[in-house]
């Protein structure tokens, strides 16, 4: 007979694992990846492959030569960071910039804090924002969808709906005239517009959300809080003056709202633990996003909003506790 194993209870496990969750998110990103390959073709493929490979490589290299601990590249978290980073970049970005972005994302965004589980900020967004500030020109040249399918660096570029709107309003145009210059809502929903490689197709991203909710990888709180607060906030502004402020649907379907709300803000490590905290965090992201988009200098603000709220997570976790058993219901009759 074998020697008996003695361990504290529980003696069974759900079978869930870090790997399953990470690969689950990657699977949830497949529809969005398909959409980006369809609209941006060659460029999207090069950007995605470069980002994923370089993120995994940097994680491996840093763990092997600097931290000298066990490699965690197989858990899928580095590949996921690479994929999300690629989705946040235009599809005509030169390879060397992507590699720098990956190094910042993994090296500074993740490994400098001690690796998976310890990073206060979403690593992919750290990489993305670093690139946006360092290479503002390259990071805001957006290839046109479909026509640039067979192109990479030489893709024909145009503006995103958000920058079209922002510029137009700055020049004194009204929302209704600008709306005619951007793709229709249906086109925006299916992703036929300019933008980062993975953020354009709201439909594909929503399929990913449904998959993750069914597999219980994430809960509804963060995406719903972000989308809801953006809808409410922009809706109020739109009602106040529809010619100066674009409507909620425009804000939800353009830019990185869907990608951010579903995949970036829900990053386990950099989001709050309690459900109530998640909702506060989501509302914070929604409000900051709208403030940056409507009143700020940048046409887009999802990345900044998420990073800012990432910074508040320790505070939220400290003060927002889960609902405790026996705390609220007090129906005892003496």
């Amino acid at each position: 007979m074998n020697r008996l194993t003695v361990s504290p209870s529980p003696h069974v496990h759900s079978g869930d694992s870090v790997k399953k969750n990470m690969y689950g998110v990657i699977i949830a990103l497949v529809p969005a990846l398909a959409a980006s390959l369809y609209y941006f073709g060659l460029g999207a493929a090069i950007v995605t492959i470069t980002a994923v490979v370089s993120c995994v490589f940097f994680e491996w290299a840093i763990q092997k030569y600097l931290l000298k601990n066990d490699s965690t590249i197989m858990d899928g978290s580095a590949a996921l960071t690479g994929l999300l980073l690629a989705f946040n970049m235009p599809s005509n970005l030169p390879i060397w910039i992507i590699i720098i972005g990956s190094l910042v994302a993994i090296g500074i965004g993740k490994m400098s804090f001690g690796g998976l589980g310890n990073n206060p900020f979403n690593p992919a967004l750290v990489g993305r924002v670093f690139l946006l500030i360092s290479f503002p020109v390259q990071m805001t040249l957006w290839p046109k969808p479909i026509v640039s399918q067979a192109h990479y660096l030489d893709a024909e570029t145009g503006a995103t709906p958000l920058s079209v709107m922002k510029e137009g309003l700055a020049n004194g145009e009204t929302v209704s005239t600008m709306m005619s210059k951007i793709p229709s809502y249906t086109e925006l929903f299916f992703g036929n517009s300019g933008g980062s490689a993975g953020e354009i197709a709201a439909a594909a991203l929503l399929i990913g959300l449904i998959f993750m909710l069914i597999r219980k990888i994430i809960t509804w709180h963060i995406p719903v809080a972000i989308i809801g607060s953006i809808a409410v906030f922009t809706g109020i502004l739109h009602l106040v003056n529809p010619e100066v402020y674009a409507g909620p649907l425009f804000h939800l379907l353009t830019g990185g709202v869907m990608l951010g709300a579903i995949f970036m803000a829900t990053d386990y490590v950099s989001s709050p633990m309690a459900n109530k905290g998640m909702i506060i965090y989501g509302i914070g992201i929604g409000v900051i996003t709208v403030v940056i988009r409507v009143f700020g200098a940048y046409p887009e603000g999802v990345s900044f909003a998420i990073l800012i709220m990432n910074g508040f997570v320790p505070l939220i976790d400290k003060y927002v506790k889960p609902k405790r058993f026996g705390e609220v219901v007090k129906t005892a009759k003496a």
Binding site: S7, T72, L116, G117, K321, P322
Partner: peptide, 25 residues
Amino acid sequence: MAKRGKTEACIRCSKCVSVCPMGLS
């Protein structure tokens, strides 16, 4: 089935919080 899996770093997935029947962290 006797042995536990390898312990990894906490990824703050918050699943422990959501399953706790006493509402603890």
